[in-house]
Simulated scan of single mutants.
Amino acid sequence: MDTTSTILNSAKNTILAESKSISELVNYLTDDFAEATKIIFNSKGRLVVTGIGKSAIIAQKIVATLNSTGTPSVFLHAAEAVHGDLGMVLPEDVIICISKSGNSPEIKVLVPLLKRFGNTLIGMTADTNSFLGKESHYILHAFVENEACPNNLAPTNSTTAQLVLGDALAVALMELRHFKSEDFAIYHPGGALGKKLLLKVKDMLDTTHTPQVAPEASIKKVIMEISEKRLGVTAVLENKAIIGIITDGDIRRMLNNNDTFTHLVAKDIMTKNPKHINSNILVSEALNILENNAITQLVVSDDGIYKGILHLHDILKEGIV
């Protein structure tokens, strides 16, 4: 028996079964989905998402997605709700209750308690005729014909359907809020996208290592400054104004073109009018300048005042690329 073939066929069948269930979800979208979305959007409270078992795990993921996309949400475990956690539900909150069957004992106990407070209840279930389906103000119909599980028992297609409906809800709310990538970055300041959209040059500039030499500095002094600051470059300053830069590449070219350099000073080998940036620009903008000009360092200056050197390696360390 070819176990590899058997395993791969099993995996393919599961993926195909789940994808089929998901594609068919569009047939079960009704005006309830739109109305529920509008109620959540216009709510002055939070969105409370509750469930039991595997649905509770899906509820937590939906909450995480909603929070990161501008819809304040909290997770309420259905079993814990009746033991005190129900106190987290506020009068203006909207509630989504997730249950495949809609008839579990915990749901039958919880739903009347939730409705007692007068909150809008949105049910996400595969059975619109279930207890949850009949008691909810609006239904998100997460119907699947069967599970990918060979015994049609383990939640597979059904939990994927719940997850996808949650994503559809989150995206619809994002569009209603005109939620942009800049907004997303605010909720993800530590991620690569957040850094790309929020991190400014001044936030990562090392002002303790600002290589600089005078125009008349000896080549030995230039080499020592480049080596000591370890940025592969030094700025050339005259009356605190940047008049040029010298890179380690400039040093190599000088050595190739001259048998001796005792007669040379910094201004003789510097590159005049180097590209420079303001410390308030985004690091992502600085990266574009580096890439477009095929260089690895940029001089940073504010109103003509030298602030330091931004190196490509510093950007790479931040994981922005």
Rank of each mutant, 00 (worst) to 15 (best):
Asp2Arg: 12
Thr4Ala: 12
Thr6Ser: 15
Ile15Glu: 05
Ser21Cys: 13
Tyr28Pro: 02
Tyr28Leu: 06
Asp32Gly: 01
Glu35Phe: 04
Phe41Cys: 07
Asn42Trp: 05
Ala56Ser: 14
Ile58Tyr: 06
Ala64Leu: 03
Thr65Tyr: 05
Val74Tyr: 11
Glu80Asp: 14
Met88Ile: 15
Ile96Met: 10
Pro105Met: 06
Ile107Thr: 08
Ile107Ala: 01
Asn119Tyr: 00
Leu121Lys: 01
Ile122Ala: 03
Thr128Val: 15
Ser136Gln: 01
Leu140Asp: 06
Glu147Met: 05
Ala148Pro: 03
Cys149Thr: 07
Cys149Gly: 01
Thr156Gln: 05
Gln162His: 13
Gly166Val: 08
Gly166Glu: 09
Ala170Pro: 09
Ala172Ile: 05
Glu175Ser: 11
Ser181Lys: 11
Gly190Arg: 04
Ala192Trp: 03
Ala192Cys: 08
Leu198Asn: 02
Leu199Lys: 12
Asp203Phe: 04
Thr210Gln: 14
Thr210Gly: 04
Pro211Asp: 06
Val213Tyr: 07
Ser218Trp: 02
Ile223Ala: 13
Ile223Glu: 10
Ile226Asp: 07
Glu228His: 15
Gly232Glu: 01
Thr247His: 03
Ile251Tyr: 02
Asp259Ile: 07
Val265Trp: 02
Ala266Val: 07
Asn273Phe: 11
Val283Ile: 11
Asn288Cys: 02
Leu298Val: 06
Leu310Gly: 04
Leu316Met: 14
Leu316Val: 14
Ile320Glu: 03
Val321Ile: 13
